[in-house]
Amino acid sequence: MKTFLLIILISLNSFLSYSQMADYYTTGYHIQTYDSFLEGFSNYNETCYKSNSMKILLNSNKMRIEANDMDQINQNVGEIGSNFTMDILILEDLPLDSGALFHKKISGTLKNNQLNSVNSMMKSLKFKGRLYGHKFSYEDFVTDKSLNGDVFFKIEYENGKKENYQIHISQKTEQQIESDKMTKKMQEDMVEIQNQKNKQVQEQNRIRQEEERLFKAQRAAQNIQDTNNMINQLRSILK
């Protein structure tokens, strides 16, 4: 029993040590937007998905896309709020298309983790397709020379369904993206507050000017009063 307890404690200890290390550990690549179709791909523009919580993992010739809280127009892959995983295997490099930084033949599987009877046919779909790079080099990305960019690919499922994908990916973690948003908002607030503070300084200057005007007016009034007194005295002497 004591040995068992000891093992549990050692495991707990190891876990806690790992948790602390995890403070400084980030996992791969995150998708920020997923919102448009490639121009000229009009044959495929039937479906549009949006998600702010997608993740992409690149490993050698494999790419895994994980999407949560998917918000989609034209339901195809799953219901709103469902999760899906897309495993893409890069098969071979193809001759470059115009403007593409990379051009690869791909195959893979789309898996939906939360399916109901309506779209159960989509539970696991194999596909073939092509991966295009337009705004960054795939090699630069996986070797950390580039921090973010867009991935374009089109796929054809085994059931005949065709889709286009444009995904913005970033090596920034979700936490970094969120903290960036927050600090940006703070900077905007700071500018607004600084403007108000500048107005305060202007107002203080105006008060100073107004006080000078008041002082001059009071002095002038006093002079007039003194002159009046003098005239009154002269008048009484002359009488």
């Binding site: 995890a22 403070d23 400084y24 973690t173 936490q175 970094q176 969120e178 903290s179 960036d180 927050m182 600090t183 703070m186 900077q187 700071m190």
Partner: peptide, 16 residues
């Protein structure tokens, strides 16, 4: 206004 990098780092650490 140069607080962002310092804060970003701390925010990430806090979130993690």
């Amino acid at each position: 206004t140069n607080f962002t990098s310092k804060l970003n780092n701390q925010l990430v650490q806090m979130q993690l």
